[in-house]
Amino acid sequence: MSQNETTNGAEVSRRDFLKQGVAGVVALGSIGLGASNVLNRAAAPELQLSQGVVSPDPALCIGCLTCEVICSQVHKDHGLSDVPRIRIFNDGRVELNAELVKVYGDRGHFHQSPCLMCPEAECLRVCPANALVVEPKTGARIIDEKACIACGRCSQACPFPVQVESKATNQTVFGQHSRITYDPKKNVYTKCDLCNWRPEGPACVERCPVNVRIRQGIIKSDHLCLELPKASREHWDQQSVADRKQNA
């Protein structure tokens, strides 16, 4: 089903109503917080910072796609959309970490595109259905799939584009433009939620095989391929500069 098509049922009628409604200010005024934030951005309350943000080092990425696929799997197992929230792109500009090359050889050049858990989170502010919320335990900016009306505003508002998908390492096309992706199967938008229900934290960080080998001391590195630092404005400034450069 394309995102503009409709199916039957009460929920969809509500979705359609909201989707059409957001075009008009009258409807915006009547649907609560998300809408009032759009109308009155200056007065937007400060958001709780995320407890973590997936922070990659492309120099350590071997393009194995474990992060992408495990992301899909754990979300699917949890009843959520199985569109991967992190993507890997071929990137000939990346200079590989010398230690990695020593143990693993030169197997290609890649960069990772995760969600940056923006302190300001434009995506959250523009959602007319209050589907984008701050998950209280982790501070992750997450999409409540049950509330999402698939209008796509969050995806458009996301300030971090991804490379053209023909450069995606797995050649799988999701029609992705930013870190928030449409899932036609579930007719929802989806984004990184830090796997907030998993005691082990984000599956990509846990399962990245380079992370595993670094933790075991087999690959010598003082940092991981996918780190999970606490979000801060300073970190976001740094990560966003690096991310924009990769996707320029």
């Binding site: 071997i62 194995c64 796609l65 474990t66 992408e68 696929v69 495990i70 143990v103 693993y104 797995n170 399962r207 095989p209 380079v210 595993v212 080998r213 087999i218 690959i219």
Partner: peptide, 23 residues
């Protein structure tokens, strides 16, 4: 299980196209 040993192990006979998670 929760690891692919081929990714960082001896993968001389493994996939060169389309491997992801498992090779």
């Amino acid at each position: 299980g929760d690891f692919c040993f081929a990714v960082t192990g001896d993968n001389r006979y493994h996939a060169i196209i389309g491997g992801e998670l498992c090779y």
